[in-house]
């Protein structure tokens, strides 16, 4: 972006900074893969790099898969359902808020946004837990699903509303003249235009649900119902640590996200940039 003609000397420090940061961002990833193929003794002897491929302990991955596959299934179910429910709510609400002026609109909009700045503390976890309990949802994945689909909407509404406001009004109006209902306007105008933003919001939400630790930790009890973070936490808390299996478990826990990112990366980078500018 700089206007001066780039010189080698001037560029070097910038690359150095970026590469330095990227190295540390990727190092834990590297460590994870490296150690996941080692036995404890190999880890002790050489924590820095891969051993010769013939000494790789593939069984770590098999063991880890046996432990975490259940957690992963739970997490996927939870995340997918809550993202689906959440996205429907986000789209409907931001469509209404962006398109229409009516009594109470500001109250609702600022009420939604304000909750972003009214953080939940550990105390809110307490009251939330007793609310879930009174609904009879303790030890049920539905508790996680309902709460997370309600929870992560705010940022989504904030971003999407501003995006819909920028869609030319004529598009909506011509759809109206054709007699399109609200739902039809959403499916024909909003959804096709806001693809990358929607993808970004959905991914953010998915990550949020996937990473949620505290709520599952206090709500879920049975081992077969745990989501991935709580399951990993239990694995990590075991007395004798099998490092290789643990790291393989961590790696497996990341794979669903890797797959998701592979398909949505392009949108995500674009959407993040576009959404952030507004913010």
């Amino acid at each position: 972006m700089s206007t001066a003609r780039p010189t080698k000397l001037g560029e070097a420090p910038k690359y150095a900074i970026v590469l330095f940061v990227l190295f540390f961002a990727f190092y834990p990833l590297f460590v994870m893969f490296c150690i996941s193929f080692k036995s404890n003794e190999q880890f002790q002897a050489n924590p820095w790099f891969f051993d010769a491929p013939s000494e790789w302990h593939w069984e770590n991955w098999a063991v880890a898969w046996g432990i975490v596959k259940n957690y992963i299934a739970n997490s996927i179910v939870t995340a997918v359902i809550s993202v689906a429910i959440g996205m429907v709510m986000v789209v409907l609400t931001s469509y209404v808020l962006a398109r229409y002026r009516f009594k109470g609109r500001n109250i609702i909009y600022y009420g939604i946004i304000a909750s972003m700045f009214l953080p939940g503390t550990a105390a809110t976890l307490v009251t939330l837990f007793w609310l879930i309990r009174s609904m009879g949802l303790v030890n049920s994945l539905w508790a996680i699903i309902i709460v997370s689909s309600a929870g992560g909407q705010v940022a989504g509404i904030f971003i999407l509303k501003q995006f819909i406001e920028d869609i030319p009004k004529e598009l909506f109006e011509s759809a109206q003249i054709d007699g399109a209902t609200h739902l039809r306007q959403i499916t024909t105008v909003v959804l096709p235009l806001s693809g990358s933003i929607l993808a970004t919001v959905a991914i953010m939400k998915f990550l949020g649900v996937w990473n949620n630790v505290m709520l599952p930790l206090v709500v879920l009890r049975d081992d077969e119902k745990l989501t991935i973070p709580v399951g990993l936490l239990r694995l990590e808390g075991e007395y004798v640590k099998q490092w290789g299996e643990m790291m393989a478990g961590y790696a497996i826990a990341s794979i669903p996200l890797v797959i998701m990112f592979l398909f949505t990366m392009r949108w995500f980078v674009k959407g993040l940039a576009a959404g952030a500018i507004k913010g």
Binding site: P28, V31, N211, I228, L232, L233, Y250
Partner: peptide
């Protein structure tokens, strides 16, 4: 793009590593 990649590691895994 490279900066986005580390996001695929779940936050808890990051913490445990």
């Amino acid at each position: 793009v490279a900066f986005v990649i580390p996001m695929v590691i779940p936050g808890l895994v990051w913490l445990l590593i």
